[in-house]
Design a protein around this nucleic acid. Structure first.
Length: 282
DNA sequence: TTTTGAGCCTGGAAGC
DNA sequence: TGCTTCCAGGCTCAAA
């Protein structure tokens, strides 16, 4: 599932492949619902003739900036993948959007589960203003993290997944960050000390940076797993301490890693390294 | 205002 | 071996 490090990897691959400067010639929507907020015809009409001037990332969104103004946003959701095709004959099952450029190449959004979306907007602020801070920006500090959590009454794991609180964290990096910080996924924010908030803040940044350095996380060999633009696998799976390691020994203490469901999400933790505290203010 | 849960989807795993 | 059922999970929206 593409989270911040995976999306960052995709954006870097797009830039390396020379996405900047390409001009859109045609759009095709094999799955019309991929066009978010517009009909495929409206989407095509507005995008054709526009030139991509840059590719960036905001949270889990790929942001393609248009030279004539405006942005094209792509969210990969669960199983979305982008690839650059050089031939019109390059088609695969589950292709949902094909943007062909005047240089003959096509940017193809392939998504097995049909969750991925593409959207046109005027600016990042207008389209993605609801997102929380970027966790790798200097402005994201332990103090800002603590402030955004203090009044919340949900389990810390569900708060880390809330994109309005922090942008870019998904299930993998939430579990890994909480393990690194020694915090039980069901702890309530009011029970966390300042020292624990600081540890969590550092753990989040560490987990994301490791993920980016490894070009993201690819689990298993299924086609639904993460692959970057050039079909590249991420190698961060070798860094994972708890995620999908339930039943295996904890790398730190050998206690068996447990799996539970928190906020409807599969959650993995070590019961020894991440003890469950009584949820009273402290 | 905040939290919770349903719905969107289909490949793959598990069970029979 | 083949069929059926269930699970996975990011995001939006409605309801509590």
């Amino acid at each position: 599932m593409p989270e911040l490090p995976e999306v960052e990897t995709v954006v870097r691959d797009l830039l390396t492949a020379g996405i900047s400067g390409t001009t859109v010639k045609t759009c095709e929507f094999p799955w019309p619902n991929t066009a978010d907020g517009l009909t495929p015809a409206e989407f095509t009409s507005r995008l054709c003739g526009k030139t991509i001037s840059n590719a960036t990332r905001r949270g889990k969104y790929i942001v393609l900036q248009l030279a004539q103004g405006g942005i094209l946003l792509i969210h990969l959701r669960m199983t979305g993948k982008l690839r650059l095709a050089t031939s019109p004959a390059d088609t695969l099952p589950h292709d949902r959007l094909r943007i062909t450029f005047t240089d003959g190449r096509s940017l193809i959004l392939n998504d097995t589960r049909k969750f991925a979306r593409a959207r046109l907007g005027t600016s990042i602020d207008e389209s993605l203003g609801h997102l929380g801070p970027e966790p790798l920006e200097p402005s994201f500090t332990a103090a800002t993290l603590g402030k955004s959590l203090v009044h919340r009454k949900r389990a810390i794991k569900t708060l880390l997944l809330d994109q309005t609180i922090i942008a870019g964290i998904g299930n993998i990096y939430a579990d890994e960050s909480l393990f690194d910080a020694g915090i039980h996924p069901e702890r309530l924010p009011a029970t966390l000390s300042n020292a624990e908030i600081k540890k969590l803040h550092a753990a989040i940044r560490r987990a994301l940076k490791k993920g980016i350095a490894a070009n993201g996380t690819t689990l298993g060999n299924a086609s639904t797993n993460f692959y970057s633009v050039a079909g590249r696998r991420g190698s961060n799976d070798t860094n994972l301490m708890v995620f999908r390691r339930n039943g295996l020994p904890c790398p730190k203490c050998d206690t068996t890693i447990e799996r539970s469901v928190v906020g409807g999400r599969g959650t993995h933790h070590c019961p020894h390294c991440q003890p469950r505290h009584v949820n009273t203010p402290g």
